[in-house]
Design a protein around this nucleic acid. Structure first.
Lengths: 151, 151
DNA sequence: TGACGGTAGTTAACATGTTAATTACACATT
DNA sequence: AATGTGTAATTAACATGTTAACTACCGTCA
């Protein structure tokens, strides 16, 4: 009989955190080599994929809260990786977009990132990975549809 | 044909983060009501389950880095929820343990936590939850066994 | 015993997470 | 135009994440 696992192995939030840590360990050396934080990388990738984007939408896509995003965008802008423009129609809004330097950086990083992800997929199994992604989507959908069951 | 999902839905690390956020949303109101952060709660639960524990082991179980744990333990000690003792045999080491107040707090929180977790299990499905936990364990095991495949 | 390498925990410095408050603006109503 | 309501983004204040440097200590071996 194996002993009962500890809380950190029975708790879904902690297991999700552990899994994320395990995955990110493979990406951190690459990010560090390019001088990017995990969050900065997320922002740049979304900007690369979606084109010019408003901060509010970036925050939702990147799972970053607005106050953090404000600082991250200021940092990226100071580094010359993005630029921002205020909307003429609605002066509250702004649009962030990659600069040429930002695009170059993404172009250099993307192949490395893809290679790491492919290696991960190879190690874990493509089917297992797809199953896990589907399960995560289902979990998120369940929780978003029934926000506070039993409360 | 549905459009190709964005990066934030194709990336395993982001999906793990999203899932964790979705789950934690259900626990945050309860934690806030008791004045605990998510991390403080993790530390207290592990101390409750394992008894007096060294910080290094706490850090591993709670998935908290040592510098963060140092501050968290100092905070919990200042709040009177734990106390610490230096080892006589090896003066580098210390042992953290719940105080009576800490035990009382855990005793009050545990039923609420269990109820939220049970509701979550009911909404997502006990089988689905077990499958996901198993998949997460498998992913973590894979990544820990093959730390840097292809590098 | 004394230099050496390794370990537990802390400190420092900066980035991000988190909640609340605040600013600046848009829009609708009066 | 004046008011109220709501929204996008920022700021503030504090906790935590993250890496590097540092302190104090252990054990070993010359």
């Amino acid at each position: 009989m194996s002993p009962r696992p500890g809380i950190s192995e029975r708790s879904l939030p902690i297991m999700l955190l552990r899994a994320r840590e395990a995955v990110m360990q493979r990406f951190r050396p690459m990010l560090k080599a390019h001088g990017l934080s995990e969050q900065q990388w997320r922002v740049l990738r979304v900007l690369d994929e979606r084109g010019p984007t408003a901060p509010t939408q970036l925050a939702a896509e990147c799972v970053i809260l607005m106050p953090s995003l404000t600082r991250i965008l200021a940092h990226l802008e100071a580094e010359g990786l993005i630029h921002r423009q205020l909307q003429k129609a609605d002066k509250r809004r702004q649009i962030a977009a990659l600069s040429d330097r930002g695009r170059d950086l993404i172009a250099r990083i993307s192949p490395e990132s893809a290679a790491i992800y492919a290696a991960l997929e190879g190690d874990f199994g493509a089917d297992n990975l797809q199953d896990m992604m589907a399960a995560l989507r289902a979990l998120i959908a369940t929780l978003n549809e029934q926000p506070q069951s039993g409360q």
